[in-house]
């Protein structure tokens, strides 16, 4: 009876920028791909994101950020997940993130970064094949 298993994704906006158009477009695409998407709204602290992810028992967290604070906030999310023993959750990022920052973010544990112009199907496919089920 495992056919009813669903991929659950938390889409979160860390930091202070107020632009969530991209996050909503991605949320919609994941919904249309049959996933359950929990959207928590703007201006989330890493603590709030990790707590929501735990309560919702998600398989994946998608972080969207446009403010430039990703080098501080993304690794902080990873650190808190590790502290909770929840580093099995797949974490991906998107937004305005310079190429040069990507290697360091990956080192911190972010699985993949999807910049502007990424086809939505790529994101869907990536999550589908990389969540730990």
């Amino acid at each position: 009876m495992n056919s009813s298993k669903k991929i659950r994704v938390l889409i979160a906006k860390p930091g202070l920028d107020g632009h969530d158009r991209g996050a909503k477009v991605v949320a919609r695409a994941l919904r249309d791909a049959g996933m359950e998407v929990i959207y928590t709204g703007l201006r989330q602290t890493p603590e709030m994101i990790v707590e929501s992810a735990l309560q919702e028992d998600v398989d994946c967290i998608g972080l969207s950020i446009l403010s430039g604070a990703h080098m501080a906030l993304f690794p902080r999310v990873m650190e808190l997940l590790r502290k909770e023993g929840a580093n099995d959750i797949l974490v991906v990022g998107g937004g305005i993130i310079p190429e040069d920052d990507i290697p360091e973010l990956k080192k911190a544990g972010i699985a993949e970064i999807f910049g502007p112009g990424t086809p939505l199907e790529d994101i869907v496919e990536y999550i589908r094949t990389h969540v730990k089920k």
Partner: peptide, 24 residues
């Protein structure tokens, strides 16, 4: 598609860090 957009948490953020509240 069986997918869903679950958006009720947006209004409930003030309780996220309260350990005595659990939202699903």
């Amino acid at each position: 598609t069986g997918g869903a957009l679950l958006g009720d948490r947006i209004r409930m953020q003030e309780h996220t860090l309260d350990r005595e509240v659990f939202v699903r």
